[in-house]
Design a binder for these strands. Structure first.
Length: 823
RNA sequence: GCGGAAGUGGCGGAAUUGGCAGACGCGCUGGACUUAGGAUCCAGUUCCCCGUGAGUGCAGGUUCAAGUCCUGUCUUCCGCACCA
């Protein structure tokens, strides 16, 4: 018998499929429902790693399965090709970022093709190509025209290693998401996208995503961080000024004993000017302002403050309270000013304790009369208001709206909803990104580059020496231009866009990847989107997935698309682990996909990675597990070729002639079809789908000496190959052709199970005594409950065990068990 | 601190609706074939004191019946965290 040699057959079929164009997708096929399956496109680092292999294998199974089920499937691939590694390579090795990137993409495409993935390569998207970033720039202008892109001077997160600023989402525990170095603050004028305008919609519409993991939705919910509360205005009579605080606990307002401003608060300057301790206060402010994100958010960072000397008036009771400045108040959140209620807020308790500020109880538990000397921390629970003027005696939950009403009536405050989410900082001081299409003219100010002049192309005469400004600033030819409005001399914006912008709309471009007139045709994008199944790593739970949702909503409001959520179903795959930790070069536990594919073939690699764990869970790499997958494919190869003579007769099963054993094999076949279909379609549990195919193969082996009917052999082998085709596309195609089947197996229809065939004539029933298994009997599957009971009670062993005992009741579960309860 | 997910053999994992815990694979043991086997095929493999035994992190509860439901608790992983 010919040996299974994946190295030969995989290459052969990849070439053949490519030649026949079997994965080319046609738009709008009548009487076929669309199905859009998408894996997150990779950064072109140069080589695929196992995480990619896992990601693409999952997507490919779904794409092939849906195609066999008769859907018109869109399954594209592309590259998130802008980004710093290309530029760093340029600095280090003197290669052009474009050359480095395109070489890497070529290599990765070669590796992807080696995997036998069913992509329509005609729709390849590369975000660094001018034909793509032209439309990224165009979409920036859409945002700008809608007032959703603006420039402001702000304190930004700066990564000194990457030499660029970062968005809040890209700072992980005070460190850079990409290189892990500490983030420092820097005051810069930067471009922002107004994602905060969509905070509420982004939050509410999470409810429209039942196909997303709760984990991801919760993370986005936390990130948006909606809170309901009130603004309270305090008068500062000595300065004829006002200061507004934000609080979620207006019910504690009668307990205010001080208030605090953030160091950056604009009022600070006025309050401290001319005081004899002004310089001391200023040095404190300076220190707080320069505290890094890392220091400020570390758990044990001490609360520090300084008194401004000024006082504000609590509008509720007219009390004069001191105004402090402290490091724990963030300027970016709320109003940058808070009220201090030591008795009912733990932070305030600590701060007031340290600086000997007054404490007054305004909420008490009805039973345990609180007293200050018995308190060791703030009382933050619900209770009854005391010392609170006209609100005394009220339940604090009810007091909240009542007190806000009072504020509104008296003009000293109002209801307010606040979000933790901040606007998206998109400027990057780097070369290898899409240039922001803006021109600064002395006369006309900020002017968009006219659409006809897009793309603003990256210059090539650049030195890659990143600093506080982009390398683009050093290219005179790039910077100097004429104003599109007045024709006078002007300068270009030299920052490029965050690459997360490029990846926020690429999934739409696939619908119409070659359009030169628009980012995409409206009808086409609406016909393919939203993505039916999106697959990628959990690390994008907030970043890419939040930005993409934001983009989709803005483009909908701009009339460019008709849908308001980009991804209907989301599957977050687990990591690939080896020896207990994530594969990484520094640990030295990396297994190279190319090596595995070279040794065993893509079919084995795919099969193992899908079999070893369900997709959401982390997957422990096992060389022995790969051997197991390899053995299984060889087992299939042998059993199918063993029966090649019978299969080539191409007969149908004659059901009327089936023996008991044949009937059982056919039953297992149809149960397997049912199971595999449901596991893929309803649960994305490929591991159990594969294990049931293995069971079928085991049954096929067990029956191989039974001189089986040729029709049944043909049916079993054919369906077996069809069921395995999405997982291991090459071996199934090879065997399909060897057996003389016509056309490609990947154009064949998915098998449908025969309900009749899945029903067994006889079933084994468990007989329990007080819930414990004591005996088993085989009975006709259609047996009545009464007859089953009778037979169970007549079993010798059951008779023996129930001897002299009273039967209280008997429970019958059809086709499963009988439980006899005795005393 | 807040929020989320998960704890099952030697290992990866299965049990989808409360109904035989451990499917399938790995590993291990034995057998067959063989000059040979690290190939292949077949069988066995939760544990133990080996029986009316115990067993799904732990302690209770509901039920004829619990990995699955309820209460409490521990551990691990992940996210957010001075957000007022």
């Amino acid at each position: 018998m010919e040996k299974y040699c994946p190295q030969e057959i995989e290459k052969k079929w990849q070439t053949q499929w490519d030649k026949d164009g079997i994965y080319t997708t046609v738009d709008n096929v009548p009487d076929k429902k669309k199905y859009y399956v998408l894996e997150m496109f990779p950064y072109p680092s140069g080589n695929l790693h196992m995480g990619h292999v896992r990601n693409y294998s999952i997507g490919d199974v779904l794409a092939r399965f849906k195609k066999m089920q008769g859907f018109n499937v869109l399954h594209p691939m592309g590259f998130d090709a802008f980004g710093m590694p290309a530029e760093n390579a340029a600095i280090k090795h003197g290669v052009k970022p474009a050359d480095w990137t395109y070489d890497n993409m070529d290599n990765m495409i070669r590796q992807q093709k080696q995997m036998g993935l069913s992509y329509d390569w005609n729709r390849l998207v590369q975000t660094c190509h001018p034909d793509y970033y032209r439309w990224t720039q165009y979409l920036f202008e859409v945002f700008y025209k809608k007032g959703l892109a603006y420039r402001k001077k702000a304190t930004a997160n700066w990564c000194d290693s990457c030499k660029t600023v970062l968005a809040n989402e890209q700072v992980i525990e005070g460190r850079c998401w990409r290189c892990d170095s500490p983030v420092v603050k820097k005051d810069l004028t930067q471009w922002f996208l107004k994602i905060t305008d969509y905070a509420d919609t982004l939050l509410k519409d999470l409810d429209k995503l039942p196909g997303w993991p709760n984990r991801v939705k919760t993370m986005q919910d936390n990130w948006i961080g909606r809170s309901e509360g009130a603004e309270i205005i305090f008068e500062i009579p000595d300065f004829a000024e006002q200061v507004t605080v934000y609080t979620t606990r207006p019910d504690t307002a009668f307990g205010i004993s001080y208030m605090v401003l953030a160091a950056e608060h604009p009022l600070v300057d006025k309050l401290i000017k001319g005081r004899n301790d002004e310089s001391l206060i200023r040095s404190f402010i300076e220190r707080v302002h320069n505290q890094s994100e890392l220091d400020r958010t570390s758990d044990k960072s001490e609360k520090e403050g300084v008194f401004t000397g000024a006082y504000a008036i609590n509008p509720f009771n007219g009390e004069k309270v001191p105004i402090w400045i402290a490091n724990y108040v963030l300027f970016e959140y709320g109003t940058g000013a808070v009220m201090g209620v030591p008795t009912h807020d733990s932070r305030d308790w600590m701060f007031a304790g340290k600086y000997k500020l007054g404490k007054k109880i305004v909420i008490t538990d009805a039973e345990n009369q609180l007293t200050l000397d018995r308190m060791t921390d703030a009382y933050v629970d619900d209770g009854i208001l005391v010392n609170s003027g006209e609100f005394t005696g009220m339940n604090n939950r009810k007091a909240i709206p009542a007190m806000i009403d009072w504020l509104e009536k008296n003009g000293c405050g109002k209801r307010r909803i606040n979000y933790r989410l901040r606007d998206w900082l998109i400027s990057r001081q780097r070369y290898w990104g899409a240039p922001i299409p803006v021109i600064y003219c002395e006369k006309c100010g900020t002017v968009l580059v006219p659409e006809k002049d897009l793309p603003v192309k990256l210059p090539e005469d650049v030195k890659f020496d990143p600093g506080v400004v982009s390398p683009l600033a050093h290219s005179e030819a790039f910077v100097n231009c004429t104003c599109p409005q007045c024709g006078g001399p002007a300068k270009r914006e030299t920052d490029t866009m965050d690459t997360f912008i490029c990846s926020s709309w690429y999934y739409m471009r696939y619908a119409d990847a070659k359009n030169t007139k628009a980012p995409f045709d409206r009808a086409l994008v609406n016909s393919w989107l939203p993505v039916d199944q999106y697959i990628g790593g959990i690390e994008h739970a907030i970043l890419h997935l939040l930005y993409s949702r934001f983009f989709t909503k803005v483009l909908k409001d701009a009339g460019l698309v008709d849908f308001d959520e980009p991804f209907t179903n989301l599957l977050t795959q687990g990591m690939v682990i080896k020896d207990g930790s994530k594969m990484s070069k520094s640990i030295g536990n990396v297994v190279s996909p190319e090596e595995i594919i070279g040794k065993y073939g893509a079919d084995t690699a795919r099969l193992f990675i899908l079999f070893a764990a369900p997709p959401e869970r982390d997957l422990e790499w096992s060389d022995q597990g790969v051997e197991g997958a390899w053995r299984f494919l060889n087992r299939i190869w042998r059993i199918v070729l063993h029966f090649s003579t019978e299969i080539k007769e191409n007969k149908q099963t004659d059901i009327s002639l089936l023996t008991v054993k044949e009937k059982e094999l056919r039953r297992i076949l149809h149960v397997t079809i049912k199971k595999v279909t449901e596991d893929i379609a309803e649960r994305s549990n490929f591991n159990t789908a594969i294990s049931s195919i293995m069971e079928l193969v085991n049954a096929f082996y067990a029956a191989r000496d039974e001189s089986l009917q040729a029709g049944l052999i043909n049916e079993t082998a054919t369906d077996l190959l069809l069921l395995l085709a999405p997982f291991s596309p090459h071996i199934t195609e090879e065997l399909w052709q060897k057996l003389g089947k016509s056309d490609s197996i990947h154009k064949a229809a998915w098998p449908v199970y025969d309900v009749e065939a899945t029903i067994a004539d006889e079933v084994e029933i468990v007989v329990q005594l007080n819930g414990k298994v004591r005996e088993k009997i085989t009975v006709a599957s259609q047996i009545t409950a009464d007859e089953l009971k009778k037979q169970a009670l007549e079993l010798p062993r059951i008779k023996e065990l129930t001897e002299g005992k009273t039967i209280i009741k008997t429970i019958c579960v059809p086709k499963k068990l009988v439980n006899i309860v005795v005393k």
